[in-house]
């Protein structure tokens, strides 16, 4: 029987999970009458944030190496615009476009990763260039808002409901119609991404190299790991996941505009931090990030349920949470130092 170790690393994760449960529980009590207790409310949080989950999973990997990727929001916007314009104005098939977008993600990551890993450019600067490039390209492709309506497959995918089996969470509404809770295909994709990235980080050489590089780059080099290659592949992975996230995001919004997904990179980073990933690298995991996204999503849902609060309140609450978590991290770091001395 393996006992679960409580180290300062997984304490952060535990706190995140506990916070999510507490927050959601509080929502159920306070806004129970507004449907907060329905499973669908929770599933909607997942549906609304499926894209962000994919993106944040990539951001987490990058942050684990001690880097940062601020290009993801713009890349998502560019992906949406390519899909919208491709379908509506060029008459291309959505499947071709999705493959194209995934390929763009790979190339995008390859360029950023090369700059960072081999030319040793600061990740912040290199991905900032990527951020401006993708945002600029979005407007170059089209400055109008383009809604996606004509591709039957894509529209079908967007509206597809996957019902929760066995009647779990089903209820009859006031009009006497049976409501079966459902998720969208994007949620399945997002959860699959989380599981795969979790396994990748834990059980593959590449995954462990990511932790090693983030823990101590010099040591990783001296232990014979290929640091540059690890870093580059991580950025490729992040941009690829970002493209998957972009498609999910687009399936949710069904349009391309120049301004959408603004600040998405910051949402991804804050989710990772709230989920226990250290900005200095080496500590964190993607399950935490999932809960980070869920917490952010729950805050929005709570504010929406309240109905009276200004829509900027989620930002304020996220800010408070971020402070709370970085202070916690700092305290744990101090405790560790004190233990050593």
């Amino acid at each position: 029987m393996k006992k679960i170790k409580i180290s300062s690393n997984n304490i952060l994760l535990l706190i995140t999970v506990a916070l999510f449960v507490a927050m959601y529980g509080a929502g159920c009590i306070v806004y129970g009458s507004k449907g907060f207790t329905h499973l669908q409310t929770f599933l909607n949080v997942l549906i609304n944030n499926a894209g962000l989950i994919c993106v944040a999973a990539g951001t987490t990997c990058v942050m684990l190496t001690g880097g940062i990727d601020i290009s993801v929001g713009s890349l998502v916007a560019m992906d949406c615009m390519i899909l919208a314009v491709g379908i509506e104005q060029k008459g291309m098939s959505s499947i071709t476009l999705m493959i194209l977008i995934l390929a763009i993600g790979l190339v995008f990551g390859l360029v950023q990763g090369y700059l960072i890993a081999y030319l040793q450019i600061q990740p912040f600067i290199a991905t900032m260039a990527g951020m401006f490039f993708a945002r600029g390209m979005t407007a170059v492709i089209c400055t109008e808002q383009v809604s996606i309506v004509s591709d039957a497959f894509f529209v079908g995918l967007s509206n597809a409901k996957i019902n929760i089996p066995f009647g779990i969470g089903a209820y009859t509404n006031k009009k006497g119609i049976l409501q079966i809770p459902y998720v969208r295909p994007t949620v399945i994709v997002a959860l699959l991404v989380v599981v795969l990235i979790y396994l990748m980080l834990k059980y593959t050489k590449f995954g462990r190299s990511i932790y090693a590089v983030g823990g101590n780059q010099m040591s990783a080099t001296l232990m014979g790991l290929n640091v540059a290659k690890t870093k580059m592949l991580t950025y490729v992975l992040a941009s690829f996941l970002c493209s998957i996230g972009g498609i999910c995001y687009c399936l949710n919004t069904m349009c391309g505009t120049t301004t959408q997904a603004g600040g998405y990179e910051m949402d991804a980073i804050s989710s990772a931090v709230i989920g226990g990933t250290l900005l200095t690298g080496g500590v964190g995991n993607v399950i935490g990030t999932l809960f980070g996204v869920l917490i952010n999503g729950t805050i929005s849902a709570l504010v929406k349920s309240n109905g009276k609060l200004n829509s900027s309140w989620p930002n304020i609450i996220t800010a408070v949470l971020l402070c709370f978590f970085i202070v916690l991290q700092a305290i744990f770091a101090k405790i560790k130092e004190a233990k050593k001395a």
Partner: peptide, 26 residues
């Protein structure tokens, strides 16, 4: 000490040459 403090002792001993399972995972 040129090891990674955030990894387990076992990983620090074997990283870069980990024993693998049949499907190639650590």
């Amino acid at each position: 000490v040129n090891l990674c403090p955030n990894l387990s002792v076992a990983e620090n001993l074997y990283i870069g040459r980990e024993p693998l399972t049949k499907i190639g995972t650590v």
